[in-house]
């Protein structure tokens, strides 16, 4: 592999990693602050994608679809937290599994009922279509670069919000000592609603931006959920910074493994996870 090709593959890896981060960030945020393991996280990715598909075909504008779908996702997040998740805070993880797996079935059935089982897709928006020439032989789709930029923007926003704002302060406090936060007079239930809605929004956002480059199929949420868990576990459950680093590691490792070690590429990221957990059983960034 010559240098330019090596660098293009690195770009592939980083780009895949950033998308993984976008999907996984909501999962780890919700777990970190609320202690809720939302197995229906992948379903939110799926719902975001299908909503974006629906509104794009309806309005003929991807941007409009983006805004509407994102807003609906926030509302869905608030509803689920207010009416369902709220009953789980004092219960153990098994009950969380029961509820959130139940949600997977409900969302899958809804998807199948509303949109059917055939693969669906939309075109890349005009403005972002086309590709950029990287080397003599390799071109790169503009839309993928756009997704990477968006993911970086989300990562930067999360970093800023968590470290520099009042909401972020409460989130950090909630992560380390929930009871103390409550005793200090912070409305923890409101905080939880906001955080859960953001988590759902982030998953949907990943689904929405993926629509032009993926195919929408039943069960698409479950596929991403697995990669998501690998990222979250490697990064350390609940750590946003960990998820970011882990997503990049997984993205790059997966890319190079598929080119250099095709025989073991299907297990490469799990091997990586096993190795990292051997050294750091709590993940890379667990406090």
């Amino acid at each position: 592999m010559d240098t330019s090709l090596f660098l293009v593959q690195l770009l592939n890896g980083v780009q895949y990693g950033l998308l993984l981060f976008l999907i996984a960030s909501g999962l780890t945020l919700v777990f970190g602050v609320m202690g809720i393991l939302n197995l229906a996280h992948g379903s939110m990715y799926m719902i975001g994608a299908y909503l974006a598909y629906y509104f794009t075909t309806l309005t003929d504008s991807f941007l409009l679809a983006f805004i509407i779908s994102g807003s609906i996702a926030l509302v869905i997040g608030i509803i689920i937290e207010r009416f369902l998740i709220i009953h789980l805070y004092k219960r153990d993880h098994l009950d969380q599994v029961l509820l959130t797996v139940g949600l997977i079935f409900i969302f899958n059935a809804t998807q199948s009922f509303v949109w059917g089982n055939d693969p669906l897709g939309i075109e890349v928006p005009e403005l972002l279509s086309g590709s950029i020439r990287l080397t003599d032989i390799v071109e790169y789709p503009v839309y993928r670069l756009f997704i990477s930029l968006l993911c970086l923007l989300v990562a930067a926003t999360m970093y800023f919000t968590i470290n520099k704002t009042r909401l972020g302060m409460m989130i950090r406090a909630g992560e380390s000592d929930r009871a103390m936060v409550e005793n200090l007079g912070v409305d923890i239930s409101k905080l939880f609603t906001i955080v859960f809605a953001i988590g759902v929004f982030l998953a949907s956002l990943a689904g929405i931006v993926s629509v032009p480059i993926v195919s929408l199929v039943p069960g698409m949420g479950e596929h991403v959920l697995i990669s998501c868990f690998v990222v979250v576990v490697i990064g350390g459950l609940g750590s946003i910074k960990g998820a970011f680093v882990a997503a990049l590691i997984v993205g790059i490792a997966d890319t190079y493994a598929s080119v250099l070690l095709p025989q073991i590429s299907s297990m490469s990221i799990y091997l990586l996870m096993a190795l990292i957990l051997l050294v750091k059983p709590q993940g890379l960034f667990k406090n």
Partner: peptide, 22 residues
């Protein structure tokens, strides 16, 4: 011959390689 793990659909690295093999 390139074999992609099932059901992976992240094809970028493979397509880059195809472009380079031409």
């Amino acid at each position: 011959e390139m074999l992609v793990p099932f059901p992976k659909t992240e094809f970028q690295s493979y397509l880059t390689e195809i472009a380079s093999i031409n």
